[in-house]
Amino acid sequence: MFKNKLMVLLCLVFMVSACSQSDETTTENKGNSGGKAVKLTFTEPARLLSVAPLYVAIEQGFFEEEGIEAEIVSGGGGAQVIASVLSGEAQFAVSGPRSMFTPLDKGEDLLAIQSLNSALTYQISLSKQYQKKKSVSKDSSFENRVASLSGATIGTNLVGDSGDVYTRYLMQLHGVDPDTLKTVKLAGDGSKIGGMQEGIVDGGIASPPMGLQAESKDVGEIVINTSEEPMYGNMVWEAVFAKKEYLEENHETSLKVVRAIGKGMEFTRNNPREAAESIVSYFDGIDVDILEESIIGLKDTFKGYGEMNQEAWDNAQDPLVEFGKLSGVSTKQDTTEDVIWTNSYIEEAFKK
Rank of each mutant, 00 (worst) to 15 (best):
Ile58Met: 15
Leu12Met: 14
Ala260Trp: 14
Glu347Thr: 09
Glu277Cys: 09
Gly96Leu: 00
Gly220Glu: 09
Pro209Lys: 02
Glu238Phe: 03
Ala37Trp: 02
Ser20Trp: 03
Ala275Met: 07
Arg269Asp: 12
Ser327Phe: 00
Tyr232Phe: 13
Glu89Pro: 00
Ala119Thr: 06
Gln123Val: 04
Gly75Arg: 00
Pro178His: 08
Gly88Asp: 09
Ile82Met: 14
Thr102Arg: 13
Ser281Leu: 07
Ile200Pro: 02
Gly304Ser: 13
Met235Cys: 13
Tyr232Thr: 12
Val56Arg: 14
Glu215Cys: 03
Lys256Glu: 05
Glu228Ala: 13
Pro97Gly: 07
Gln317Leu: 12
Asp334Gln: 10
Cys19Ala: 13
Gly155Arg: 09
Val240Ala: 01
Gln21Ala: 12
Ala46Cys: 02
Val280Asn: 06
Trp237Ser: 13
Leu291Ala: 10
Ser148Val: 06
Val13Asn: 09
Phe323Arg: 09
Val13Thr: 11
Pro230Asp: 12
Pro272Leu: 10
Thr167Cys: 06
Lys106Trp: 03
Ala206Phe: 04
Glu322His: 13
Val81Trp: 00
Ala18Ile: 10
Glu65Tyr: 08
His174Glu: 08
Ile72Thr: 15
Phe350Ile: 14
Asp218Met: 07
Glu348Arg: 11
Lys217Asn: 06
Thr180Tyr: 05
Tyr246Trp: 14
Tyr282Ile: 07
Thr153Cys: 04
Ala187Lys: 13
Lys352Val: 09
Ser50Lys: 00
Glu71Ser: 15
Tyr130Cys: 10
Val159Gln: 03
Leu86Asn: 11
Lys133Trp: 08
Gln60Arg: 15
Gly160Ile: 03
Asn225Tyr: 07
Lys263Asp: 14
Ala119Glu: 07
Leu255His: 00
Leu186Asn: 05
Glu24Ser: 05
Thr268Trp: 15
Gly324Asn: 09
Leu49Arg: 08
Gly199Leu: 07
Glu59Met: 05
Glu274Thr: 12
Ala349Asp: 06
Gly285Asp: 10
Val321Cys: 07
Thr226Tyr: 04
Leu149Ala: 03
Gly107Val: 04
Asn270Met: 14
Leu181Gln: 02
Glu228His: 10
Tyr122Leu: 01
Ile279Leu: 03
Cys19Glu: 08
Lys185Gly: 05
Ser127Gln: 02
Lys332Pro: 01
Ile193Cys: 09
Arg269Ala: 14
Thr301Leu: 09
Ala83Gln: 14
Leu120Cys: 04
Ile296Val: 12
Gly160Ser: 01
Lys263Thr: 14
Phe42Glu: 00
Glu292Leu: 08
Gln80Val: 00
Asp314Gly: 02
Ala152Tyr: 06
Ala214Ser: 09
Leu116Thr: 14
Gly160Ala: 03
Gly75Ser: 02
Gly151Arg: 11
Val329Glu: 06
Leu12Ile: 15
Tyr130Gln: 06
Ser99Gly: 03
Ala312Cys: 07
Met231Gln: 14
Val280Met: 07
Glu108Asn: 09
Gln129Met: 06
Val94Pro: 01
Gln333Val: 08
Phe2Gln: 04
Lys352Phe: 06
Leu54Lys: 01
